[in-house]
């Protein structure tokens, strides 16, 4: 489903003038996608709720910095991504999201798994266990790939908006998206490869 939140008519002027009813409308319009982003990034409800609250607190404080050049949602996502990074990095060395290193090449992610699981029945692929395998694979993605993947494939932002949100170039977004997808594919191939072998043993 596309995250279109049918562009609610939020008045920037009213927000900047301190109109609290308008801010409440902003919160109700955008809190669900921000919460889901936090859930996907951090994997637990408490951290997602912290990110949600801090995102809107920060948005409220920095309303004057929002120039309206990007969409409100992109602006809020950018804040939420930064808030999520802060949670993820608690006690960890800092990693910059805009790190561009020589490993930003898709070739490093050449497939090694060739299990033909694509034709498995949908009820297996979309079972509770199947979804858990997918969630684990997403959580295993390195941070800089996960951000891009979540914004593009989960929140369904365009390549352009994903790039804008993360301060990356569009080509960098594309490379990271490909690497993320290939990594997920590898992980799912291992998982379903084991399932297929298990079924053969049981037969």
């Amino acid at each position: 489903m596309i995250e279109t939140i049918s562009k609610p008519d939020i008045s920037l002027e009213a927000l900047r003038a301190g109109d609290r009813a308008e801010f409440a409308r902003l919160v109700d319009s955008y809190s669900a996608p921000i919460y889901r982003l936090g859930l996907r990034m951090l994997g637990n409800e408490q951290d997602a709720e912290d990110v949600l609250q801090n995102t809107f607190l920060s948005a409220f404080t920095h309303l004057s910095n929002f120039e309206g050049r990007s969409s409100v949602l992109t602006w809020l996502y950018r804040i939420a991504v930064n808030e999520s990074l802060m949670v993820m990095r608690r006690g960890k060395p800092e990693v910059n999201i805009d790190d561009t290193d020589s490993s930003d090449e898709a070739e490093d992610f050449s497939p090694t798994q060739f299990v033909d699981w694509g034709a498995l029945p949908e009820d297996m692929l979309l079972s509770v266990e199947g979804k858990q395998a997918l969630d684990r694979a997403i959580q295993n993605l390195p941070e800089n790939l996960r951000m891009v993947f979540l914004l593009r494939d989960i929140q369904e932002l365009s390549i352009k908006d994903t790039a804008e949100t993360l301060g990356l170039t569009e080509s960098n977004v594309k490379v990271r998206l490909l690497r993320a997808r290939l990594s997920l594919r590898e992980q799912l191939s291992v998982y379903y490869g084991e399932r297929i072998n298990q079924e053969k043993i049981n037969d």
């Binding site: 489903m1 995250e3 809190s31 669900a32 919460y35 889901r36 497939p111 060739f114 299990v115 033909d116 699981w117 694509g118 034709a119 692929l125 979309l126 199947g130 979804k131 997918l134 494939d153 989960i154 369904e156 997808r181 290939l182 997920l184 594919r185 799912l188 191939s189």
Partner: peptide
């Protein structure tokens, strides 16, 4: 062929598991 099929399936599964878009 397998890489293409399973990559497409991976992306399809991600999109399918996004549904339904739950509210807060």
């Amino acid at each position: 062929r397998i890489v293409v099929d399973t990559t497409r399936k991976t992306v399809d599964l991600v999109h399918a598991s996004n549904l339904p878009q739950t509210g807060l």
